[in-house]
Amino acid sequence: MLQYCRMRLVQAREMVLMAGWRTLLRDIIYLNRVAVPVEIPLDALRPVTDFSRPADEAVLELSPELLGERRLVYRYQSRYLKALNYLDKGYRGFALVKGNTVAGDIWCADRRQGGATGTHPDESWLGIECRPGEAYTFDMFVDPAHRGGNLAAALQNGALHLLRKRGITKAYGFFWADNVPALWVHRTLRWRELQRVRASRLVLSRKLYVTGHGAA
């Protein structure tokens, strides 16, 4: 619990330094914000070559060994602490690495793992139900110093290809409708948009309900 609290405090401080108080407040307090659940069959992915990157970059799966030995470097301490927390919970993480620096990462709850790590809390309020052999992807982050040049699309597409190699047949996720870069990435990769959900949150509380309109 102390480690989790430390992570959240560091995350809040770094978010303010990165994007200002307004972004932090929008993340913890919102009313009727529209979330867009999405799905994609992993036999219909765009080729990795559609989003080619420099030769010193690669998408790889994270592990406690890679992070514990500091063989990979996060510029933001909060992302490093969050990665350790996610791995401890049994989630899978994938990172686009430039040299030994993590330029961005994305996480997933894999139904093949079973137990507590087989589902993610988002699935219930989004109306998503992952079956065995499916995964829910969440919390993609790209370091501001590395944004642009299709890096977000390369990261997400590369991670989905690695999931496919590990036997996953379908992936789910969501993005906020007011997050234009996230909307662009998901539509570029041809995710299918599902019935939208409105979410309200006041700091740590959250009230969620499904809207009357369907996918865009």
Rank of each mutant, 00 (worst) to 15 (best):
R26C: 14
H120M: 05
R112L: 10
F51Q: 00
E134Y: 06
W184V: 15
Y91E: 14
I106A: 08
P41V: 01
R70W: 08
Q195L: 10
G118K: 11
N157D: 01
G99W: 08
Y91N: 10
A182C: 09
L45P: 00
Y30L: 13
A55V: 02
L162A: 09
M1E: 06
E61C: 12
K82S: 11
F174S: 09
A159T: 00
R92W: 13
M7S: 01
D110F: 10
A135R: 04
A199R: 08
E57K: 08
F94Y: 03
Y172I: 03
V97S: 02
R8M: 00
Y172N: 06
A103D: 11
V73Q: 15
R112C: 14
K170P: 01
V197G: 14
L160F: 04
A55S: 03
G173N: 12
Q113I: 11
M140D: 04
N100E: 06
V59E: 02
Y74M: 05
D56V: 03
V36Q: 00
S200Q: 11
R26V: 12
T117V: 12
S78N: 06
N85F: 14
N179A: 07
L31M: 11
R147K: 01
R8K: 04
F174Q: 12
P181V: 03
A215T: 15
G167H: 03
L96S: 11
A216G: 13
G20S: 01
N157I: 02
T101C: 06
K98E: 08
L9Q: 03
T117C: 13
T188F: 15
D56Y: 00
E61Y: 03
A182E: 12
A182I: 15
W184F: 15
R8S: 10
E57Y: 05
T137W: 03
E193N: 07
F138D: 08
R201K: 14
K89F: 12
K82H: 12
G149F: 02
F51I: 06
G167M: 09
L160P: 00
N157F: 02
Q195P: 05
